[in-house]
């Protein structure tokens, strides 16, 4: 398959190891990955903060950049983020419609229909749960709210993790509880956000896991920031960063690969 990658703005700027892992992983599975360089952001932050007018140019850029998927130039778009996939699927059309851009709203729908969060792409579209990974570590999984409830990815990420050789998956208490990030919520309601984070960090530490994983670096940045501040030693890693790890090219928790392999 020819798969276009939407890296997401936050991972592009702050956590490029996740989209890099997606590239390596999909290529290892025999697919071609394309990165349309005109991409920037899906517009989620603007929409969820209420700045719908300011979201319009951002959303338009995303839709234009990925429009070729609707014409069959690529088979699918993959996004290593539940919340960005959710925004693409459930918000972009609304933003464009409200701006009176009906034609682009239709294009947004066509793009959204072919856009998948990573675990959806792997399990539903590519039909794999065992991606041939090796990761001999104790891991716990946080099902981010938008993956869980907006997308309904269900247990797909856990199925992928259970198939990883050497990985010990330990359940997270109150896993479905929000970590308190909520985008700008973490700034506008910093105290409440911190209280939610504190509870999440406590549950993560309680698992005794070495690594916390999730399908979204925004939530991981938040929980990871709390884990780091608490000196817990638990490392946040995106699902893709675990799935890309093999015996030949192992990924070591906490070690950031800065350059292309």
């Amino acid at each position: 398959m020819r798969i276009a990658l939407a890296a997401t703005c936050i991972a592009d700027a702050m956590f490029p190891q996740a989209p890099r892992a997606v590239v390596t992983l999909l290529e290892r599975l025999g697919h071609e990955v394309v990165f349309p360089p005109a991409q920037a952001c899906c517009g989620q932050m603007h929409v969820n903060t209420g700045y719908l007018a300011d979201a319009v140019p951002v959303v338009r850029n995303h839709v234009r950049t990925f429009a070729p998927v609707a014409d069959g130039e690529w088979d699918a778009v993959v996004v290593p983020s539940g919340s960005c996939t959710g925004s693409i699927r459930h918000q972009q059309r609304m933003v464009l419609e409200r701006a009176g851009l009906d034609q682009e709203a239709r294009a947004a729908t066509a793009v959204a229909e072919r856009t998948y969060e990573l675990s959806e792409l792997l399990v539903d579209v590519l039909g794999v749960t065992d991606v041939g990974a090796w990761f001999p570590h104790r891991v716990t999984y946080h099902p981010t709210c938008h993956s869980l409830r907006m997308l309904g990815v269900g247990d797909k990420p856990e199925r992928l993790l259970r198939a990883v050789d050497g990985l010990e998956l330990v359940p997270l208490e109150q896993a479905e509880g929000c970590c308190g990030f909520g985008g700008t919520f973490s700034l506008k309601n910093a105290d409440t956000s911190a209280a939610m984070l504190q509870d999440k960090v406590g549950h993560v530490v309680g698992t005794g896991a070495e690594v916390l994983t999730a399908g979204d670096w925004s939530c991981l940045m938040h929980i990871g920031g709390g884990l780091s501040r608490g000196g817990t030693g638990v490392r946040p890693m995106h699902l893709a960063e675990i799935l890309v790890s093999t015996r030949e090219a192992p990924v070591v928790p906490g070690e950031r690969q800065e350059v292309a392999r």
């Binding site: 702050m14 940045m221 920031g225």
Partner: peptide, 13 residues
Amino acid sequence: SRDLPEPPRQTFH
């Protein structure tokens, strides 16, 4: 209440 990880040397782009 949270640390921020060190930004990478190189963006994904």
